[in-house]
Design a protein around this nucleic acid. Sequence first.
DNA 1: TCTTCTTTTGTTGTGTACAACATCACGCAG
DNA 2: CTGCGTGATGTTGTACACAACAAAAGAAGA
Lengths: 248, 248
Amino acid sequence: MTLVSTLGRLPAADGAIQSGGSRERIERIYAVLRKRICLLDYAPGERLREEALAAEFDVSRTPIRRVLARLEDEGLVRSVHGVGTIVTDIDIDALEQVYQLRVELAELIGKLSPVRPDAQKIAAFQTLLARCETLVATPDARRFAEINMDFFHMLNSLTANEPLRAISELLYYQTTRIWLKTASRLESYQAVLNTEITIFHREMADIVAAVEIGDLEVVGHIRRAHISMSFLRLRDSAHADATRGGDD
Amino acid sequence: MTLVSTLGRLPAADGAIQSGGSRERIERIYAVLRKRICLLDYAPGERLREEALAAEFDVSRTPIRRVLARLEDEGLVRSVHGVGTIVTDIDIDALEQVYQLRVELAELIGKLSPVRPDAQKIAAFQTLLARCETLVATPDARRFAEINMDFFHMLNSLTANEPLRAISELLYYQTTRIWLKTASRLESYQAVLNTEITIFHREMADIVAAVEIGDLEVVGHIRRAHISMSFLRLRDSAHADATRGGDD
DNA sequence: TCTTCTTTTGTTGTGTACAACATCACGCAG
DNA sequence: CTGCGTGATGTTGTACACAACAAAAGAAGA
């Protein structure tokens, strides 16, 4: 519940930082909304009103609709005539197919047009690993999700295959929310969070080590296992919780 | 050149068949435009005007823009302020990455949630094979492209993994045009067409045989080879043609 | 009190006028 | 004849008014 707490004032969007062409503006709004959805600033089932968004971003409904249309095509929202634009709900079982596909694509990133990481990229990985270590010290679900997101983008930059990157990103944003949503409903929320962060940190260390020696195939293998097991742990937790407690 | 000949009157779109909700209407327009682009009814570089499309489909610019936005997100067109909506140009080399990915996905279709083909589906495959045989008798580039498209959809229906299907479809429609476009520019156009149809027919027969015995993994392997070699043949033809003749 | 119909309110979908922008034609000076 | 500036023309991007639709609120009857 405290996951969706910081709703009162949302970051970004204001500040009149909207320089640049119309395309970039739309892209920016898109990125902001997508991030809000995936960090559960907008909860599943929540209703977004175009006019409110238009007011916040200081544009008319038209460009907002352009963004929402894309989000709808990507499965993150669904517009219903006369009702509103609803953030899609998700459940762990329905996402199994997406995870199966993500697992395969993760391995492909190490195979298709891999980019040899240079010193700068390695440094970025190490910085991220350091951030993850502070996370282990003071666990926080939202920061976990954010670091996970940054980590994904770093990993995604390890292939030069642009279509593969685009698709991996698409599937990533279709699935990340499920962790925050499911975990927040668990009885053993704190324990699960701590466990998950510990495991994530360990796997991240392994991957960074593999990146440092430039073995992207190994990165792919580790990540494949990472994604797959992460999904299984989450599903088991959810099912165990559902059978033990009421099914709300 | 004769490929883009039937432009005077385009099929579909009129007839006032626009029953159903607004979403379905948009979906229909989207499918029509996408098919036109991929069959080169709209040539690469051609300029589409929203108002003309709006008139043809008997709607305002608004839903047309909704469709064009999606086509732009998928890389088939690009809207330029003050100019028009341009059908994206493509070249064989830029598409190499997409083909690399398609090759991998083709194999996944036999692995991820394969659906055991029933009698009806097998019959559909055989019907398609029959159509392909008439194509061998009387080669025609456009019919080749259409049968190829139908064949793709049949193959795509062999997995129940919905995200995989969606993505395979996306990548398919990003790449199919290249064959028609490249082939039509070749000196040895007719010879290449005949060869390609023969090869396609043979591979299609192999795949249908594999479908009949229900071995979808084999289907994946055959198709992987099919896509990969088809790309290589096309690229070689294009490069040979470019070095021999002038580069236009 | 409950049910059902009507009204009211709110939201997205559509159509359209206008602004922003790019391109081409044309004139004109050099 | 060429190069450049300037206006005319055409197109997409935006904003807004209205239609279509859904849901909630309210009224009326049993």
